[in-house]
Design a binder for these strands. Structure first.
Lengths: 231, 231
DNA sequence: CCCACTTTGTGCGTGCTTTCACAAGCACGT
DNA sequence: ACGTGCTTGTGAAAGCACGCACAAAGTGGG
């Protein structure tokens, strides 16, 4: 197996595909731990909970890494997906808001295998600042800029109450952080070029409630439709 | 805010719309707290972070609740969206896995305004069982079935380690729970008719990393493409 | 070497989402 | 009553995403 020229691929991987790559990656790692060397699209799709045609099309956006009649080599595919996702380099993460959720996040080891390193924990509460959580000393929010620069933070996680989230986001942006993961239940306003993803417990519950209600409504009547997921 | 007959609408709201309704709802509640009586699609869309045409089309699926030339009445719209999402009734939630995350979830008050009530906390660890978290005594996982029935649990939240998640999911399903919110990093296997939504921290981080890397690549020039092999 | 079998990669039809752009509708002032 | 100004609700177009079904490509047996 010889390396390849720069690979002319690079066009743009569909967003929907990007969202599934981490799922494939995880399934592959499970297979690898089990000692599996190769896997078919059918088998991998099963493990990832998707249709096999979709999986093949997704992987085809990365290049042609399978062998017809055989399948995909697990180790090689892990490497390719990792590289595509940018996991072959390390990302420094700062978590702001060390309440229940922030602590849970800080202690959540295996941050997606590796690739992510928690570089700092920040909070505004004097009661919390100075304490040690997950082997890191919690620093005061005022040192956000300094920490971002000195630790090379490139991803900011916001786990503060809703009221403080926008302010923290703005400071992250001001400090040069362009990737933000927001757990606070507010819509963040950021300039173009900054990528914000949100994780919102109550939204998920409300979506579940909607489908549950629908199921209950039509129960006993017309045949039912099940809502699938969509992330 | 007078109600109306059941409304003959009932067609089928697009999934993409359902996922945004909770966001609109939250924005509306903020407006209401501020004392705003009516709001235009433009303003509400701004607060919710979406395009105004999209917002209008989304709302049009619920019915025709706006007034041309004026906008939407905040209170009335809150009521309609709440009703559509099934928030006018109460949902009992059981959380399994009272580790860092489970505790964070249990303590996360204002579970999306209201509509959701945490009915039980369950764990397998004898060390945790019996302790009180968020005013609730943690019960042993073995009483899952009993709890689901006696408390009328209709939504199950899984906050266990990956290894235990599938087992818990199966027991939920067996006990009749058809809505599951999964925080464990595994793909759950459930029968048709069961609705599973997943929240996955490391997947979100990986998606952020992908975009961050892409931004970095195109920056300045597009040097640095690694074409290495692995065999 | 050839054939039967397996599995990938993808062209294509279908359906869902988003966005545009504008007619229709309502309030208000004159 | 009527015109003006604003905002909704929605056709229509464009863009994505999904999944089928099959040709292409590789393996292994005879």
């Amino acid at each position: 197996m010889i390396s390849r020229p720069p690979r002319p691929r690079e066009k743009g991987i569909p967003e929907a595909t990007v969202a599934r790559l981490p799922v494939y990656l995880r399934a592959l790692q499970v297979l690898q731990d089990r000692g599996t060397a190769t896997v078919s699209s059918e088998a991998l799709a099963g493990a990832a909970g998707v249709n096999s045609a979709k999986l093949r099309k997704d992987l085809s956006h990365l290049g042609s890494y399978g062998t017809r009649g055989v399948g995909y080599e697990v180790e090689y595919l892990i490497y390719q997906i990792s590289r595509e996702l940018g996991l072959t380099q390390d990302w420094s993460v700062a978590i702001v808001g060390i309440g229940n959720l922030g602590r849970a996040l800080a202690n959540y080891g295996g941050f997606g295998t590796r690739g992510f390193r928690i570089a700092a924990l920040l909070d505004a509460d004097p009661e919390v600042v100075g304490r040690t959580v997950a082997s890191l000393e919690v620093r005061h929010i005022d040192s956000l800029e300094e920490v971002v620069h000195s630790k090379g933070v490139s991803i900011g996680v916001i786990a503060t109450p809703a009221g403080s989230a926008q302010g923290v986001a703005s400071r992250f942006v001001e400090a040069g952080v362009t990737s933000i993961l927001n757990f606070a239940p507010v819509v963040l306003n950021v300039p173009d070029g900054v990528d914000v993803r949100k994780v919102d417990l109550s939204i998920e519950l409300q979506i579940l409630a909607f489908h549950a209600q629908r199921r209950a409504d039509g129960d006993g009547r017309e045949a039912e439709r099940v809502g699938l997921e969509m992330t």
